[in-house]
Structure formats: structure tokens, C-alpha cells
Design a binder for these strands. Structure first.
Lengths: 124, 124
DNA sequence: CACCAATGATTACATTTGTAATCATTGGTG
DNA sequence: CACCAATGATTACAAATGTAATCATTGGTG
């Protein structure tokens, strides 16, 4: 998987939210959260195309872009890379850090319990 | 917190494992896992000094380096940044991804349960 | 003392990334 | 048809990053 930079990720994430999308669609969506010039968005979009994370279909002069890389595949890859790099591949130290720094809510705990419960149903 | 690149992190991680350490100590340690030229390690070390992640004490011509940035602070910051960026600040989707992709072991589950149990003792 | 290797400081260069600007083409409108 | 704005393609430039090389200084040794 080719590396996708943080700025590129923002563009790709906007596309995952809604596609197919034109460059102008994405520029409008991103303008809500990032004060980026439209030229910046177009460049990042073109880099994503070059990296084969995004494809497009021509419709007259307008291009309609769609993701080639799935959000889940990407988030899993990035998560795993970070866990590997920082925690020798173990997820528990990451969660322990969140717990220690009071960054877990009751809702998070419930959700984790649910995931564990489901895992046990499928694996124990 | 100043961004620490992946290569810089490797040097810093070697230092966290054992400090104070000379440049040569680090070069030797890193040589085990990375085929880096010694000049590369020195450059990365100097960049870490510039970023104030690392300090040093002179001992004749030899410098003994030590971390200024704590491993836990860094790993928590990076973890949180990733979770914020990819999962809107929620840890459960990250764990759910690991579960879904069969990347959790029984041992991970035990550890997560322990963390949850501890959290509940301190917060419920 | 002279020499040399060791050590850190500084420089180098290619690639990647962030944030644009400029250029070329082309639909649409008057 | 001419013109112009829209649209994508290409270029630009600074900073960060990866991976070095070169330079300046200085301990240690013969």
C-alpha cells in the first residue's frame, strides 16, 4: 500500500463520505473544515489518483471521482502500522494509555465489552 | 509537540531502551534492526536534539544522549492523533477492526478485560 | 610533537508533503 | 463565431524527511 499523507487522507476521507464526487464537490465539502485553496484540493486529488487510491470517470469536461481504496482497508492498515511501530503489535498498551490518561468514557467501555463478547462468541 | 518522523522515532526508541547512550551505542543498537549507515543515525540524532526530544551531556569529545520526551507521552500523543484522525476520537472502532480481521489473540482479550475491570474499579 | 582516527557539526541531495500558481483545453453563452 | 470561465494538467516552491557525505575539531598514540 502506498503511503497516503495526512493532507491526502483528508481529501480521501471526504470522498469516502460521498462518491462519486467532482473536484468542486470535494472542494466545497472540505472548505467546511479546512481553509484550503481549491488548487490545493485539486493537487491532493491528483496525487491520490497517481497513488491509485482514487479513480475517476470523465463526464464531459467534468471528472467524477471515486475511491479505489476502501476506508476499512486503509484504517486497518494504518492502525496496525502504528500499533506495530509503537506497541510491538499489541493493542492493550494503547487502550491502557487511554485508560490511564482518563480518556475513556463509559460508552467506550461498553463498546469494548461488546466487541470482546462478540469475539468470544466467535473464537472461544 | 513537534512532529517526530518515523526514522527519528526509531532512534529515539533505541535511546528509551537504554540511556544515557553515546552515538556509537545507538548506532550499534540500531544496526541490529536497520541497515543504516552511522551517518544516518547521527543526523537523525541531531534532528531529535534540534526538536528538543533529546538532550546530551558532553564527556570529553563524546556526547551522552538522554531522552527529553517520555515514551509514554509520545505514544499517547501519537495514538490519540491517529484515533482522532481516523476514528473521530473513538477507540472502539480500532479494536473492532482488529477483531474483525482476526488480529486479536486470547491474550489480548484477557489484557483488555483487565484494563476494563481496572477502569471500572476507578470510575464506576 | 605530528599524525590520525574518532566524534560531532554542518552540508548535500533526492523524495515526499503542504500549499499553492500557471497553463492548456473545452464547454457554454452571447 | 468569439470569448470566457470552468476544469483538469502541469509546474512551482518551501519545508520535512530519508539517507547519506564532508568538514572541523580534538583526544590518543607513536
Amino acid at each position: 500500500m502506498k503511503d497516503i499523507s495526512k493532507a491526502e487522507y483528508e481529501v480521501l476521507n471526504a470522498l469516502w463520505e460521498k462518491y462519486p464526487a467532482s473536484a468542486n464537490d470535494l472542494i466545497a465539502t472540505l472548505n467546511i473544515i479546512k481553509p484550503w485553496h481549491d488548487k490545493t484540493v485539486k493537487t491532493l486529488l491528483n496525487r491520490l489518483v497517481k497513488k491509485e487510491a482514487v479513480g475517476f470517470q470523465k463526464e464531459k469536461r467534468k471528472y467524477l471521482y471515486y475511491p479505489l481504496l476502501e476506508k476499512e482497508a486503509y484504517t486497518q492498515y494504518e492502525s496496525k502500522s502504528l500499533i506495530e511501530r509503537l506497541f510491538s503489535g499489541r493493542v492493550s498498551p494503547l487502550i491502557a494509555g487511554f485508560a490511564k490518561n482518563q480518556e475513556l468514557k463509559k460508552e467506550d467501555i461498553s463498546q469494548l465489552k461488546e466487541i470482546i463478547s462478540q469475539w468470544e462468541k466467535e473464537n472461544d
